[in-house]
Structure formats: structure tokens, C-alpha cells
């Protein structure tokens, strides 16, 4: 007596018997497939995935730390360059200030004239020459657009 016949004898409705038969066949197929599946597949896949993730994270960390170090070095070099240029500008400004401050020492020069009149006169002459040359340089540096005004100033000066 087959199982189907047995079920048909027990269950009067053939559709219910058929459904239960299909249900059993389905469970058997699923169970056989699950029972015979290789047990290490999931574990291996998870292991590989973890290994890959660890490697990726390690590489990211190494690349990040390297990039950070390079950026820091670049920043320091940039700061040093800026500091150096600032120092150079300050030095140039101090030099220019010293040059401008030189004519403002007539009192000292006067005291010196009492002791060394020729040297003082010589220094005064040098100063006058320097101022004259600066004036001429400045007048030479008047832009073209300001030329009419400069000429007017000259003409006023001559009048």
C-alpha cells in the first residue's frame, strides 16, 4: 500500500491528500538539500570577507597616515617659506626706514660741525645730493596720466 493510498484511505478529500503529499515531497527535498550542503561554505565566505575587510582597513589606515605625514611636512615647509619672506620684507622695511631716517639727524650733525666742520659740510653735501637724486627719481616715476599735473607743478615752481 503506497503512501498516497494510505493518505487517501485516511483523508476522504483527494485534494487535501494530494496537498499533504506535495507538502511532504517538498519538505523532503528541502531537508535533503540542506542536509547535504557543504558545511564550510558559509564559514569560508565569511572568513574571506573578514580578511578582505581587514586588509582594506589596514591599507586605508596606512595610506591615511602617509598622506597625513606628507601634508604636515608640506604645511611646515609652506610656513617656513612664509616666515622667511616675512623676515625678508621686515629687513627691507627696516633698511628703507634707516635710509629715510638718515636726513633727520641735523642736530647731531650740528654738534659734530663744531668739532669737524669740513666733515659735516661734506656729509651735508652728500645728503643734499642724495635728496636731489631721490627727487629726480620720484619725478621720473610720475605716471603718464599725471604728467600734465607734474608739468603744471613745474611751471608754478618756475613762476
Amino acid at each position: 500500500m503506497s503512501r498516497r493510498d494510505k493518505l487517501a484511505g485516511e483523508i476522504d478529500d483527494p485534494m487535501v491528500a494530494g496537498a499533504l503529499e506535495n507538502f511532504k515531497v517538498s519538505v523532503d527535498a528541502w531537508s535533503d538539500a540542506a542536509y547535504n550542503r557543504p558545511p564550510t561554505v558559509v564559514r569560508t565566505a565569511r572568513h574571506n570577507w573578514r580578511l578582505a575587510a581587514t586588509w582594506a582597513l589596514g591599507c586605508m589606515l596606512a595610506a591615511g597616515s602617509l598622506a597625513g605625514g606628507l601634508y604636515e611636512r608640506h604645511q611646515r615647509q609652506e610656513l617656513a617659506r612664509i616666515e622667511a619672506s616675512k623676515a625678508a620684507i621686515n629687513a627691507a622695511e627696516q633698511k628703507a626706514a634707516q635710509v629715510h631716517a638718515a636726513p633727520e639727524k641735523p642736530v647731531k650733525a650740528a654738534t659734530v660741525t663744531k668739532r669737524q666742520p669740513t666733515a659735516v659740510k661734506k656729509a651735508a653735501n652728500e645728503n643734499e645730493d642724495l635728496l636731489a637724486s631721490v627727487d629726480s627719481d620720484v619725478s621720473r616715476q610720475v605716471p603718464a596720466a599725471m604728467e600734465p599735473l607734474a608739468q603744471m607743478m613745474d611751471s608754478n615752481g618756475t613762476k
Binding site: G18, A19, L20, N22, F23, V25, S26, V27, A29, W30, A33
Partner: peptide, 27 residues
């Protein structure tokens, strides 16, 4: 998903669909 496990056997496509529906219903 559990009802997907049904061997084809010697059934037609229509019988296969009906059987799958029955199995899902029983589940």
C-alpha cells in the same frame, strides 16, 4: 520560500504551479 522546494517530477508546468500553491498553503 519554503514552498519553493518541490521537485519537478513528471508534472506539467501547470501542475507544478498548482502543487507549489498547495504547499505554500499548507505551510
Amino acid at each position: 520560500e519554503a514552498s519553493d522546494w518541490l521537485p519537478n517530477g513528471e508534472r506539467s508546468a501547470e501542475q507544478q504551479i498548482v502543487a507549489r500553491e498547495q504547499v505554500a498553503q499548507v505551510w
